[in-house]
């Protein structure tokens, strides 16, 4: 599990998981990878621990990390394909099925060299899906706290649910992007990261912790890219995202893009969640029909 430092909720997840597994009676040692704060050795020791330092050389570890990175890049690629193709599929569920098979295929690859062949296979598999050409699906962006955005079990499979409603979904966070932005040395960081962050300045002009600023910036960015709406997700009581939420009505008004904030916690009943998603998408479709501009905020 990855960890976080300071009062952020992200650091709390690893600790909670540790307690839950302990309660379930597992005997284990939990290694939480925190961003090194002056103690790089500690992180390296932890990595050595995971990588079984007695059997593997540093070279093996570096090789393995490169392999894993390539797999992660490929996984993100196929996920983006899934988002693009799903709303256009002729037979409901077909893309999802193909995607699930491909995820397993990527998982099963044992050698780096095989990845390239697999990539060609992947594009073939996706191009074989029967799609309707003349559909322009509604495009919705998803922003918010990283874990709730990335973990389907937590966000009640929001991407799949929206896909079912015929929506093309885009996220502001993908694992590989996140690693590039947060863990890479600055000269390797994506160039537009700071440029996008600047978009938040009229609304939130300082660091508010977590990804509060990023969320606001991404809403503006999605609007500039011509998206029809944005869904903003946060776990109950996530402070940076609450700050972002307070800026949402203004962003939504100024950029004329509907934004719906959903606060997820253990009480988020699936029925109510689904009702909100459906109503939000209906609203976008209807607005599109009458070619009117929508302003939406709040929950």
């Amino acid at each position: 599990m990855a960890g976080g430092v300071g009062p952020c909720r992200f650091g709390y997840y690893g600790e909670v998981q540790k307690e839950i597994l302990k309660d379930l009676g597992y005997d284990f040692e939990m290694i939480i990878l925190d961003p090194p704060q002056g103690h790089v050795i500690e992180l390296i020791n932890k990595i050595r621990l995971i990588t079984n330092k007695n059997n593997n050389t540093v070279k093996d570890v570096v090789k393995a990390i490169r392999f894993a990175w390539k797999k992660a890049v490929l996984l993100d690629k196929i996920e983006k394909q899934l988002f693009k193709i799903r709303p256009r599929e002729r037979y409901r569920g077909q893309t999802e099925k193909v995607y699930n098979f491909l995820v397993k295929d990527i998982l099963d690859v044992k050698y780096e060299e095989e990845l390239e062949d697999l990539e060609t296979e992947i594009y073939e598999a996706f191009s074989n899906i029967n799609v309707s050409e003349n559909v322009t699906p509604v495009k919705v962006g998803i922003v918010g706290e990283i874990y709730t955005v990335l973990e389907p079990f937590v966000n009640l499979h929001i991407e799949e649910q929206l896909g079912d409603l015929g929506v093309e979904v885009h996220r502001n966070i993908y694992i590989t992007d996140w690693v590039r932005e947060n863990l890479f040395p600055s000269f390797l960081k994506p160039k537009d990261h700071n440029k996008i962050l600047k978009l938040a300045e009229p609304f939130i002009n300082c660091f508010v912790g977590g990804h509060g600023q990023e969320s606001v910036a991404q809403i503006v960015n999605f609007s500039k890219m011509g998206f029809d709406g944005v869904i903003h997700l946060l776990p109950f009581t996530c402070m940076p995202e609450i700050v972002a939420k307070s800026a949402v009505p203004r962003v939504s008004q100024e950029y004329q893009i509907p934004v719906m904030t959903i606060v997820l916690d253990e009480h988020s009943a699936e029925t109510g969640f689904r009702t909100r998603l459906e109503a939000f998408i209906d609203m976008i479709y209807h607005n599109r029909e009458v070619n009117n501009i929508a302003v939406l905020s709040g929950n």
Binding site: P258, V263, D282, M283, V290, N292, A294, V295, L296, G298
Partner: peptide, 21 residues
Amino acid sequence: QDSKIIVIRNKTVVDFAMNTV
């Protein structure tokens, strides 16, 4: 068991909210 507000402008829904928990 639920309550909602629907905001309409120019004959289209532009905003809504439902009670949460």
